[in-house]
Design a protein around this nucleic acid. Sequence first.
DNA 1: CAGACCATGTAAAACGTTACATGATTCC
DNA 2: GGAATCATGTAACGTTTTACATGGTCTG
Lengths: 181, 181
Amino acid sequence: MLKNILLGYLNYRPMTGYELKQALDTSTSFFWHAHHSQIYTTLRQMEKDGLVTSTQKAEDDALRRRVYDITDEGRNDLRQWLETPMSEVSHVKEEFLVRIFFSGQRDPQKVLAELHEQHKLHTQALDNYQNLRECMPAHEHSTLKGTRDHIFWNLTLEMGFLYEKMYLEWLEMAIKSVEQT
Amino acid sequence: MLKNILLGYLNYRPMTGYELKQALDTSTSFFWHAHHSQIYTTLRQMEKDGLVTSTQKAEDDALRRRVYDITDEGRNDLRQWLETPMSEVSHVKEEFLVRIFFSGQRDPQKVLAELHEQHKLHTQALDNYQNLRECMPAHEHSTLKGTRDHIFWNLTLEMGFLYEKMYLEWLEMAIKSVEQT
DNA sequence: CAGACCATGTAAAACGTTACATGATTCC
DNA sequence: GGAATCATGTAACGTTTTACATGGTCTG
């Protein structure tokens, strides 16, 4: 899966592993994240498999920056993946909900504290999306020439926003529910 | 993580691997799932680690049913895990959103078809939660003696419901957005 | 010159998926 | 007797996390 994301980014332009890590941390982090160690090793594997090529930025580059570029084979691979539709829903894995599910015998005060902490964190996440959303210029009138990318970027951003809003709503309900015990 | 879920269930009552798989598939599947192969191997590992014990249901049981029971050490382990609060938000991994993010160059008709397919699947999921919700008797007046478990079970069920509702809302927005292209 | 950030890697362990494998019971 | 479901496992493979490891650059 990480492979597809890296190909997706490299399809826009050549990038280093470090830049890809940053791209994942900012743009894609809501729905996929990865540690740098995995990114670097996956890139090397992809190079072996002929999906990307890499070159040192300059022969004497002290930072040893290695720029990756997608190959035709890589582009094919990416297209193939995108053209094969998903026919299931992605499986959710939410540790916090597991904790809640098994919280019947915990001290209610401690559960409440944890719910409040999550509320704080999800509020921060929501603020983040709200800012990003406001920063987004009216794409309708600006850069729409030739590319429809922004439509889809906005859609995923909007999902992040809706998700956090829904999560906060639920947390507030949960807090009330536990308080009434 | 799977370990904690299995301990959580076994803390209610002794169960076989098969029953645990069913419990995961019905109660917990919205926020955690696992294949039977992983469940059986994890149970064996937990037995080695002294967190559970296992016994054959009957010496001549042709079905080789093996019943697992939690030990004191297992109960400790579970308590410890529950008492250590989470101070981050769980990371989401949604393959479908990755696909949408990189869909700028796909045939819009194919993207639409995929969005409609997801809409169908998430509608089914929502119906499921709605049924479960209606089946839940008014716990307030029934089994509340001694256990607060149902409060938390209902909360996770409610989250499943809200999540699917939000997802459908987003899908409808996404469909409109792509149609207008 | 210290601290933040740039930049890349290896290795081991943990976790998760897929495929293979087997055989019993139950209901029609 | 055939199909669905009960019931448990192993092995290979692939993915992800965690810890270790190193050194350069840039800003105040």
